[in-house]
């Protein structure tokens, strides 16, 4: 990445021109908060069925357990989410160093960099489940979708992968990944759905 730092090309956020920091909807205390996540690194890791060494490599390199079912393992800097049979999504909170990390993973899995393929955001707040229920055909109740659960599904006809991180003071927190090309349509739905609860929007 050292070379890239010299580049005069500036990356553009997947949310650029779509999401602005501020507040939408009714006045009052925000029922929902959305925070766009820029600069995250994402990559798909795929192994042949029964391949054993990705789990140990993941543990060694980022200190996380490779989830066997639809769960996500998280640290403060990295995460790895189940994303289908023999298929995971590796991510880092910052892109710096991610290319090198992918290089070391490539001995253990087929690696495809998806850092620019997803628009990511965190949503939380006391009314967040009510907002997501306007597009999610999966059950978000704690008994079904606990902390650490992930799902590949669609929100309002937009393919997403999302997971639930540790709860915050206002209840559950979800991180949602949207195909970059559909960030605008996703946001149009999310903003319309959240407006009745008052939504605060922060940009990373």
């Amino acid at each position: 990445m050292a070379e890239q730092a010299k580049s005069i090309w500036r990356p553009r956020s997947a949310w650029a021109g779509i999401v602005e920091a501020g507040q939408i909807g009714v006045d009052g205390k925000p029922g929902v908060t959305a925070l766009t996540l820029d600069d995250m690194g994402f990559a798909t890791l795929i192994v042949p069925p029964g391949s054993p060494d990705l789990a140990s490599a993941t543990k060694r390199m980022i200190g996380l357990d490779l989830p066997k079912k639809a769960f996500v393992s998280l640290s403060s800097t990295h995460g790895v989410a189940w994303a289908g049979a023999n298929h995971w999504l590796l991510f880092a909170r910052q892109q710096a160093g991610f290319v090198d990390l992918l290089q070391s993973f490539s001995d253990h899995a087929a690696v495809s960099d998806q850092s620019h393929a997803r628009a990511a955001l965190t949503v939380s707040g006391p009314r967040v489940r009510e907002v997501l229920a306007k597009g999610a055909m999966v059950d978000l109740h704690s008994s079904v979708f606990p902390v650490g659960a992930t799902a590949l599904t669609s929100f309002a006809h937009v393919h997403v992968q999302f997971w639930r991180t540790d709860d915050g003071p206002d209840g559950p927190i979800f991180e949602i990944l949207v195909p970059r090309s559909m960030a605008g349509s996703f946001w149009s739905w999310f903003a319309a759905s959240a407006a009745e609860f008052n939504c605060r929007i922060d940009r990373d």
């Binding site: 639809a70 049979a85 055909m137 799902a151 669609s154």
Partner: peptide
């Protein structure tokens, strides 16, 4: 078998 009970739309 991977994802659980899902709507047929998926």
């Amino acid at each position: 078998p991977h994802c659980g009970l899902r709507d047929v739309q998926e």
